[in-house]
Design a binder for these strands. Structure first.
Length: 329
RNA sequence: GCGUCGGUGGUAGAGUGGUCAAUUACAAGAGACUGUAAAUCUCUCGCCUUCGGGCUACGUAGGUUCGAAUCCUACCCGGCGCA
């Protein structure tokens, strides 16, 4: 639980580096990393661009759906124009027909961050996928066991009881802590155990950055209103057309449903299984639920500094202070 | 006006004398999260509680019964049919 979160209890972690080469007392700088997060529809992308312009930064999107090529309107992917010349990473890096993963994201994001730092710019991670953000900002080391489709397919046919008993054979410890009603968790645990013999405890590495997390929040009423208006805007922009196009390009309805939110119900709507009103109502609700899940996730990270989107001056001041402060190891 | 069917918790909708504070679904609230994370999963959900229980509830008011959301009567409201 909360233990996970404290992964970057920074300053105290003098371990990184073979810094024994350096004479004691030497001040070294950890590169700075800015994170902008928050639930959907709070204006993260906008803010990120503003900050990037002001503080000479580049942006790494941390959004598990914007990585896919062609999912633009439904994911609210920033347009070329809106980027205002600021370089963005981790957009359009995957084929929507195939599943993406945190590990792939982490890889790409770290590569991008390195490049940005090398160019002496400020890396800004911006997005709403908490798990992705955690993977780099909290230094979680995931076990290096890639997905095995064959095994997964086999396990998917089993029920919870059976999955639990398989896991028990490998790793009774892990079974104790895992959510036994969540097939996805169980399957992944078995997958890991089948390679490593057991599920290793989640390791926390030192975070090689000095991190500032800025969270954007809105009151519930405002959030609901924004979600509503944004959905209407997306419809006007051609959300339905986008889905039809994706389908004609070979994205199956089944896969589209897996992508969630808008895409999950777009298929039903296009196939006339629901009316436009039902469709809109449904999605709006789903997005509200999603926002709530995001908020739940972010709540446990006590280091996030929360602001309302319009408090830009306060935010700038915070970033300013963060950049000014020298970091010591 | 007569006939008929119905009025149940935020909503839909079960229940048709005791095991009913009332199945279920949705909404709402809280939460989890080891390579699917916009995914996946859990809990709470009338009010009060010293967690034993207590109180108020199935349109309203009466009645029958040891006991009613369930049966009877009247009234109110809605749908349908006939006038």
């Amino acid at each position: 639980m909360a233990e996970l979160v404290d992964a970057h209890d920074s300053k105290s972690c003098g371990a990184i580096l073979g810094s024994s080469i350096l004479p004691p007392g030497t001040i070294t700088m950890k590169p700075k990393l800015l994170v902008i997060l928050g639930p959907t529809a709070t204006g993260k992308s906008d803010l990120a661009v503003k900050i990037a312009k002001k503080f000479n930064g580049e942006i790494i999107s941390s959004d598990s759906r914007q990585v896919y090529i062609g999912l633009n309107i439904g994911t609210g992917k920033i347009t070329r124009k809106e980027m205002k010349g600021v370089k963005h990473y981790m957009l359009d890096v995957a084929d929507p027909k195939r599943k993406f993963s945190v590990a792939r994201w982490k890889n790409g994001a770290e590569k991008a961050i390195r490049q940005i730092i090398k160019r002496n710019k400020l890396p800004i991670v911006c997005g709403g996928t908490g798990f992705y953000i955690q993977s780099i900002a909290h230094g979680i080391l995931l076990p290096e066991v890639p997905p095995q489709r064959h095994l997964r397919n086999k396990l998917e046919k089993k029920n919870l009881r059976e999955l639990a008993s398989i896991l028990k054979k490998f790793d009774p410890e892990r079974l104790k802590s895992i959510d036994k009603k969540n097939p996805i968790r169980l399957i992944r645990a078995i997958e890991i155990a089948s390679v490593l013999g057991k599920v290793p405890k989640l390791k926390e590495a030192d975070v090689p950055y000095e991190v500032l997390e800025i969270g954007l929040k809105l009151s519930n009423e405002e959030l609901v209103k924004k979600i509503h208006n944004r959905l209407l805007k997306r419809m006007k922009k051609g959300l339905v057309r986008e889905a039809k196009r994706l389908h004609s390009q070979g994205l199956t309805w089944k896969r589209m449903r897996e992508l969630g939110l808008e895409y999950r119900y777009l298929a039903d709507y296009i196939e006339k299984k629901m009316s436009k009103e039902q469709f809109l109502e449904r999605i709006e609700m789903e997005i509200r639920h999603y926002a709530k899940r995001q908020i739940t996730w972010f709540k446990r990270d006590k280091k996030i500094k929360w602001f309302e989107p319009k408090q830009t001056t306060h935010i700038y001041r915070e970033v300013d202070a963060f950049l000014a402060q020298p970091s010591m190891l």
